[in-house]
């Protein structure tokens, strides 16, 4: 039986499910983007928030699966039932290769992942005869199984919501499992873990591949929403955005990356409509977050609640504000 944490996630998903009931296509499409990029940010956070590795190459897995699906469907007419597993497989395969980066740590890991990420961008950009170069691949068909086709935005919205919810629940199980605990142990002290019989390399490698698989899944969801893909999908900026979302929302949490996604996507899609310097704004959000809120929105909320609880306790003692009961921390 699912317990409280899982029920909370299902409840949030149910709330999100009501968006199409009161909002127009613009907001439904924005919500899809929020969910898909939130999933990408969550995949980044498996490494960042749990294993302590900051990866800046996740756009590569995202784009790899998106391109695979697009090329198979558009150029070779392969049906979705085959194209989707193939996309996931290619993204995961890439993660198996890029996983060598877990041999490095700290800033080296960051630099290596940046460089690896640029390989994929460079290939999508320069291998024009296969990837379409700057123009990318357009006219990806609607998702379809046999004659059954999903053409409406709202229908696809529910597909995305269900997949993301499933992913999130699986992710939750993973980070609470012994495997997830091992990752957090490695983040805390690798030397101690080694002396207890662990191989940091093996666990981090598997975590890297799982994370790459999740990013590939986000890529598949993305391609059937966007229905075209170009090198911008593989660009460093996407990897940066995913990391920013995770940090902005709060690393090591499940809702955090999605909260970060809400903020960034609203900035990008809504604010940019009347304020042209979206990138400057994003850079500033990045700087301010790192300097002043390294634990993200969830971190801010938690410390605010802790402060309020302390204050409530002192006023309680004086007896002036009897209704100000501190909320119990979960």
């Amino acid at each position: 039986m699912p317990e409280r944490g899982a029920l909370t996630l299902i409840f949030v998903a149910a709330l999100v499910a009501t968006v199409p009931l009161f909002a127009g296509d613009f907001w439904v499409s924005l919500t899809i983007k929020i969910l898909v990029l939130g999933l990408l940010a969550l995949s980044v956070d498996l490494l960042l928030g749990h294993a302590g590795l900051l990866s800046l190459c996740h756009a590569a897995f995202f784009a790899m699966s998106a391109y695979t699906v697009a090329i198979l469907q558009v150029r070779y007419g392969v049906p979705m039932l085959i194209a989707v597993p193939a996309g996931l497989a290619m993204g995961t395969l890439l993660a198996l290769v890029f996983g060598v980066s877990v041999r490095t740590r700290g800033v080296y890991f960051i630099l290596v992942t940046i460089a690896l990420g640029f390989i994929v961008w460079g290939v999508t950009y320069r291998w024009a005869s296969f990837t379409g170069g700057d123009n990318g691949i357009t006219n990806v068909p609607y998702p379809a199984i046999g004659d059954f086709q999903i053409t409406s935005m709202t229908a696809y919205f529910y597909v995305v919501l269900l997949v993301v919810l499933g992913c999130v629940l699986a992710y939750r199980t993973l980070v609470r499992s012994p495997f997830g605990l091992v990752l957090r142990g490695l983040k805390s002290s690798e030397s101690r873990m080694r002396s207890l019989g662990y191989s940091p390399l093996r666990h981090l490698y598997v975590a890297f591949v799982l994370s790459g698989f999740m990013a590939s899944l986000a890529g598949v969801l993305y391609i059937y929403f966007n229905r075209f893909v170009n090198p911008a999908t593989a660009h460093f900026h996407i990897s940066v955005e995913a990391v920013l979302m995770a940090i902005l929302g709060g690393t090591g949490t499940i809702l955090g990356p999605f909260l970060g996604s809400v903020v960034i996507m609203v900035l990008r899609n809504w604010v940019s409509g009347f304020f042209p310097y979206y990138m400057t704004l994003m850079g500033l959000v990045f700087i301010v977050t790192v300097l002043f809120a390294p634990n993200g929105i969830i971190g801010l909320v938690n410390s605010w609640r802790a402060r309020r609880a302390r204050r409530a306790k002192t006023t309680d003692a004086v007896g002036t504000e009897p209704e100000a009961q501190p909320r119990p921390q979960p």
Binding site: L54, V107, I110, H237, V240, V243, I247, M279, T280, M282, G283, L284, V285, F286, I287, V290, L291, P294
Partner: peptide, 12 residues
């Protein structure tokens, strides 16, 4: 944090 910070600076 410095790495991330410089990414933000670069974007701006």
């Amino acid at each position: 944090a410095q790495v991330l910070l410089t990414v933000g600076v670069a974007i701006v």
